[in-house]
Amino acid sequence: MDLSSINWLLLLASLMVAATPILLAGIGELVTERAGVLNLGVEGMMITGAICGFAVATQTGSATLGYLAAALGGAAMSMLFGFLTQFLLSNQVATGLALTLFGLGFSALIGQSFVGVQGIRVEDLNLGPLADIPVLGPVLFQHDAMVYISLLLVAGVWLFLTRTRGGLILRAVGENHDAAHALGYKVVRIRLMAIAFGGACAGLGGAYLSLVRVPQWTQGMTAGAGWIALALVVFASWRPWRVLIGAYLFGGLTVLQLNLQAAGLKVPVEYLAMSPYLITIFVLVIISGRSRASIGAPATLGQSFHATT
């Protein structure tokens, strides 16, 4: 093995790119879950966003419009889930799983004419002198805009949840929907907004795959990223900054795995490939020993709300 052949700077740079899709989807799902809704359809919403974004971007030549379409597509998918779970009070776990399956099939259907189409080129953001800083420049400041938007989004979500009245209400709805209802908050409406936000973020994450990371459309191209995003929220025990750490950790592992292989590491690659999942299971085992409240899970997560009075 020759570790010196790995260019660690470039590795760190591509880590940020590899982590962005799961970071976006993860932060969206975090908001949804903090409002007490468990949406397992992240994978389905991501892939819908991937095809919507790719289709619009290749037709119009604009990445911005592509991202916009992806966010709308993801949000529209999540509204389907919202309608079923919030108005028809269907089981959230089953509905979420159905949403994933539906999204995978639906995206393959509308994506048929986009297979093999060349994607558009998304330019890196020009950050001027920052990009020329030695070491830090190539790692942190030579990416496309969405990488920075995802970071801002994490900061924004953290600010919103911990420092604003709106965030307090959202958390109240997630912790105890009956009490929030008694105080006069519109539980269903707030939850729908949270679900839509989660869907839009998942859509953006999917579009990042099809517009920047690959850049191509293929059936099932999210390849389980949505599930990693779901695991990420648990891994982060529902705290925004920990989602960031987790996303970069998991993103780093996937990139590192390939780099170690290219450098000729003797460890079987299968172990490296499954390491993100192993870490998630490990964290789950550790936190499951503690009580629900101490790990930060919203108290009414996954429960349907029906106003009786």
Binding site: L10, S14, A262
Partner: peptide
């Protein structure tokens, strides 16, 4: 430098693999 992708067709993975190889100077 050989990377085993364990797939015939997975654009995201193939893209990442190519990226890793290029970063190592290929």
């Amino acid at each position: 430098s050989v990377i085993w992708a364990y797939t015939w067709f997975d654009p995201a993975k193939e893209s990442d693999a190519a990226q890793a190889l290029i970063e190592q100077g290929a």
